[in-house]
Design a binder for these strands. Structure first.
Lengths: 188, 188
DNA sequence: CTCTTACTAGACCGGTCTGTATAATAACCG
DNA sequence: CGGTTATTATACAGACCGGTCTAGTAAGAG
């Protein structure tokens, strides 16, 4: 039986947008419905698991998009330093454009939806996939200990987003891009 | 007029503990009162600014403690590499001991209390102070570009806490300690 | 003892939260 | 046409939210 409306998808995207801005507990389902002009009656039809399922699926969606986008950043630049610069640069632009309101769709939920196990698991899975992509590219460039390096890459980018958003200043993202560069050169 | 009870201080500590565990919106004031065995009637006597003031002051308190502790880590170790290892090691132990429940008292609130301006400002101030301490020590060790390096230090530690907590594994904190070390040696 | 001030008890407000009813509508299938 | 399934409308339950209010207790000052 094929789906006949796009309500489910629109719900997911509206929710993802609100979650990354206001966090898990800071976002109400009524808010999601209102913001997206969505039919309230169908919320628990499409997501019988309630808010937790909604958030978990939103994280899954965002995670896949981030992975694809990071992968593209690495393939479209000659080396890892360029990829890092592209990634932090894009994040900085996006952050500033939103008035420093929208955070990372995964990191934000990872912080305050830790008690909702399905959401936590979805975030962990997204981070794992993201880490795998970065590690693969670092290894391809012949960098030493790509596993720990990829983890540090992720942590620094995630932390820099946090700092930049909180301080309403893209400086942390830019600082990470420059300070981390030496680790991403072959001769380090 | 001197204070006659320690209620205010106990409220602050209970709130800080709950906030770093469940986040800003995930923590209710009734919960704070119940958890700490605190007099509900006096909540708005001590904190007329309500939840926002409570959270902002809790962040201030935690921020000062973190600063002092980081400063000690740097003075008690011969070089920056040792300090980073001590810091991440302690954080990993503390995190694991709490069953991966308690996050950074500043970072957690910075994520999901961004709309509560006083709380956001308190977090920004705490990060600023923390950054100042680290930058000072890195400069003292003669490291180049201590400002950006300190920012990266902070971002990586904060991000690693996020990852470790979410994945219920101290590996990210340990990975950051090893991968970031080359940047903290004089001959880098 | 009296008075002032610091503090607490605990009920209560309107509002919002997630989640659940029941029933209506709308499309496809035979 | 009838029947099945997909989807939505709407009202509401029950709990909890942050915050306010009034009344009162108790400790120090004079």
């Amino acid at each position: 039986m094929p789906r006949r409306t796009d309500t489910r998808d629109r719900t997911l995207r509206t929710a993802a947008e609100l979650f990354r801005t206001h966090g898990y507990h800071g976002t109400g389902l009524n808010q999601v419905v209102a913001e997206g002009g969505l039919p309230k009656g169908s919320l628990y039809f499409h997501f019988p698991g309630g808010k937790e399922q909604l958030a978990a699926e939103a994280v899954g969606l965002a995670g896949a998009e981030v992975c694809a986008w990071v992968d593209r950043a690495f393939t479209e630049t000659p080396d890892a330093v360029g990829a890092l610069a592209a990634i932090t640069g894009f994040l900085a632009d996006e952050l500033a454009a939103s008035g420093f309101r929208r955070g990372c769709p995964i990191g934000t939920l990872a912080q305050d939806a830790g008690d909702a196990e399905p959401v936590r698991a979805a975030c962990a899975e997204a981070f794992r996939a993201w880490h795998g992509v970065v590690r693969g590219h670092l290894a391809r460039h012949g960098l030493p200990d790509p596993d720990a390096l990829a983890t540090t890459f992720l942590a620094a980018v995630e932390g820099a987003q946090l700092l930049s958003r909180n301080q309403r200043d893209t400086a942390p993202l830019r600082a990470v891009a420059t300070a981390l560069a030496p680790l991403l050169r072959k001769d380090s």
